[in-house]
């Protein structure tokens, strides 16, 4: 079988010839496309550091075969800011001290962007925590992360209201 695939990564079309069907989406992003913002933590779907959006949905890229995602649209941490303007979730993580060492942060931010898009948690901190349970933070910055997600969700909702007004 032909192992060449085509992905749209952060809005740019990327054609990749895979050497091997075993390549995960995570390894393809990091090793082939040099997008090392997406982190390899456990590599087994337990820590969430590898979270990216695939066709708008957050998933663990370590448990996704690249070959199976031919044609998909991928959003990684490198693609969320607009030039020097941070994404509201990025800005909120800084404002609320939502990290310490920073290793889990790209995955936390991508997960938070996915969570806000899913619109299941509302403004309930308990629901935010539950909906962020797929992302571990060994520094224990959870309190700041929850505040950052709530704040970013609010600022995105306000921005959307202004746009539609």
């Amino acid at each position: 079988m032909n192992l060449s695939i085509s992905l749209t990564v952060n809005g740019v079309r990327r054609d990749v010839e895979l050497s091997d069907p075993r390549v995960t989406l995570l390894d393809l992003l990091r090793e082939r496309l040099d997008l090392t913002g997406t982190k390899k933590g456990c590599d087994r779907g337990q820590c969430g550091a590898c979270t990216v959006l695939v066709d708008g949905r957050r998933i663990n890229s370590c448990l996704a075969l690249a070959i199976s995602h031919d044609g998909a649209g991928i959003l990684t941490i490198e693609g969320v800011a607009r030039g020097d303007q941070l994404h509201p979730v990025q800005a909120a993580f800084i404002a609320h001290d939502g990290f310490q060492c920073g290793f889990c942060t790209p995955g936390q931010i991508m997960s938070a962007i996915g969570l806000i898009e899913e619109a299941q948690a509302g403004d309930d901190p308990e629901r935010i925590r539950e909906c962020m349970s797929g992302n571990l933070c060994r520094c224990g910055a959870y309190a700041g992360i929850t505040e950052a997600v709530l704040d970013a969700q609010q600022s995105l909702a306000t921005a959307n209201q202004r746009r539609s007004a």
Binding site: R57, R58, I59, N60, G114, E118, M132, S133, G134, N135
Partner: peptide
Amino acid sequence: GASPQLRNA
């Protein structure tokens, strides 16, 4: 069950 990322997949 699982996490939101896993349930999405």
